[in-house]
Nucleic acid binder design. Structure first.
Lengths: 223, 223, 223, 223
DNA sequence: ACAGACGGGACTGCCCGTTCCT
DNA sequence: AGGAACGGGCAGTCCCGTCTGT
């Protein structure tokens, strides 16, 4: 029917991302990706020269999707700190709470060991995300809504904490249960110098020791 | 001479670990592992029923080797804080500075996504390492050589920082160059509440609470 | 040029037959068959799901080839008894004098012990050959060129004699030497009630007792 | 725990014969043979240097067993034609009606394609059987109990007929059903020139044409 | 004489990326 | 764009034969 579908490459990339996230890259063959997109393997090869290229496209899909949603999220609110909070919430939801996402990024990390293109892609993506957050943090700083000596350090720490949580979730899945969103969010906000949510509460969260490092690591043990 | 080699399983596990660390698990076939150990694939299958089992053996080899070296390291010195420092130094050297080790653990992480046995093995290993360090920290605490409100939290933070560094090294290899040992070590020690090395030095490193966490993230950017 | 070869299955079957005939089925691996046909094992498996299937195809190749040559042979001459003689000559040449053919059929017999499909295939082949010869015999009978009370019995006997010769050739190869063609042929024709070739010759061959059973068995012993 | 069992080689040969007859030579491994004999593979190799040797031993077991039973059978009766009949009956029972025996000999035939020793063994065995029967036939001849112009030819024909029946039984098992013993026996006796069993019966069987070839082939078709 | 762990080699069946023809 | 065909590679299996130990 649609004998000319200009969006087919994107459809294939989306299918690839979806399947890779569910089953891992090595476990998904091109036949499956093609049929998931409604075409055959032969057609897939008209758009992508190799599985590697398809992986790159899946990464690009992931990066672009994340950026688009991030931008859409912050566009909804004008207040700097609200924007930052929304950005954080979205990141937690998509990157941490979504198991498929955790799978995909871990697969990408491992693949980047052997594929320079993947490695470069992620490096660039990570850099742009960092710059994005630094921008949000500085805006909130200028608005005196948060406190931070060194925005870049704070963002770096926050991002590293997210990676740390991702890794821990491998072995302790409960720490990324959907119900943990608030807790995780609070920790990340604390790292970025957010004020305490409840004004009357003791500023424990803001207490230096509390904010030290991957705050998530202090979460009560799971029973 | 070939027959009757009770240590062959260990030899094979060591070969598997060595090759997996160099080239990744999927890139190494059993033929290569066997020939690295001086036997053939047919013989390998007398000892291991599948590649999965061999992977588990390689993990066990890794765990055991790490533990053995850790114990040997701390046995050399009686002073608690020296022991802790030695343990940290060894960990940094073997887990962070050694690229093969970084490759192996990342491969294991990804594999643990699909192999419950691998996942359980690593969970147990990680737990035992944590307990080991907590013990060392408490000993140093009793000796008033370090300060730490919550040893478990400090150790968790330190270990998470190591994982964070490992991940960053994927995309910024220079931060795990051999020359960085001192810097990395200092950061980890700072997290565990070590006193400042040089009394005259600016106490920036000790500015305790701020720097705690993934201190490594504040390292100057690579040019 | 490799792709799109609809005749590849036949080529592979022919290669399989050729190699099986030379070295036996168990002694030939799929790699050898594939490379003999100019492809690789992976390609072979696109056409045949297993070695068993390939054996079946080799049998089919053998059956079809024999039928085709038989039909071509009889089509060349119109005279019924000449047709019968040509058919016999071809059968002797291909089935008895050709060592490869003897090997192949013996292998097939043994394999049919354990493979019902092979067994059924041979049964059908044997049946069709028998019908073919019965038809030729009856035509010659109607032409008063041979004498036979019971064409079916005569054909059965003739075919059984051929099998008997095949078996004896295993242990006394000389009885299937190329030079024996005439002698074997004469015996088979005698069973089918052919008239004596030379009118002046002693009718020894036609003597009942001489014709009893596998006449070939009366051939002088080899020194 | 018989640590000294001089008869172990025979036991192993018997086990080998039994298993080879049931499942074929290629389908039986040495482990199975050894355990069937109550020992392990290591012990088997003390008695036989290779699987080939074991096959040879199984053949020898078969030959010897057949000879022994044949001799025992004829020793029971003094009358020449009775002896011949007993010998025939035993041969039909052991060689034709017993499916295992048919399997074993067919396996041996195929193996003899590639194993000169097996081939020579069978050749010798076959020769000795032929001589044995020729002796019995001549004795009966001297006693005027049968008629035969050429005892050797008659025996050859009879033996070839048995082989022919064996082959046909592959594809038409019913012709070797236990109930067919009488019919098969009658055919073979007819070839050897036995008098008709019932005096009043029409001497059809003795008519030359009827006796031509493997008389068994004239058996009514199976429905 | 026996037991059995072990080594070695070969092979089947399969997967999956890739190419080519239509 | 479709899909038949190809190619390489590898896991898992089988089983023979050997070697140590008893």
């Amino acid at each position: 029917m649609p004998n000319y579908a200009p969006e087919m490459p994107l459809k294939l990339a989306a299918s690839a991302f979806a399947l890779f996230s569910r089953h891992g890259i090595a476990q998904v063959n091109l036949e499956a990706v093609a049929s998931h997109a409604g075409v055959t393997k032969g057609s897939l090869y008209w758009h992508f020269a190799s599985k590697d290229e398809l992986v790159h496209a899946a990464c690009a899909h992931y990066y672009q999707n994340y950026h688009r949603r991030l931008n859409a999220e912050v566009a909804k609110v004008p207040d700097p700190i609200k924007r930052l909070e929304q950005a954080l919430r979205l990141s937690v939801r998509t990157c941490l709470l979504d198991a498929g996402n955790r799978v995909f990024t871990l697969e990408i990390f491992t693949r980047s060991l052997y594929d320079e293109t993947v490695r470069a892609g992620w490096r660039q993506f990570y850099g742009s995300v960092r710059e994005f957050f630094i921008g949000l943090v500085q805006a909130a700083l200028l608005n005196h809504q948060i406190v931070a000596d060194d925005p870049e350090l704070a963002v770096n720490t926050m991002l590293a904490t997210m990676e740390g949580i991702k890794l821990r979730a491998l072995f302790e899945p409960h720490i990324c249960a959907a119900t943990e969103e608030g807790k995780i969010l609070a920790s990340l906000e604390s790292i970025l110098g957010f004020p305490l949510p409840a004004p009357g509460a003791k500023p424990a969260v803001r207490a230096p020791r509390q904010r030290a490092g991957n705050v998530l690591l202090s979460m009560e043990k799971h029973k």
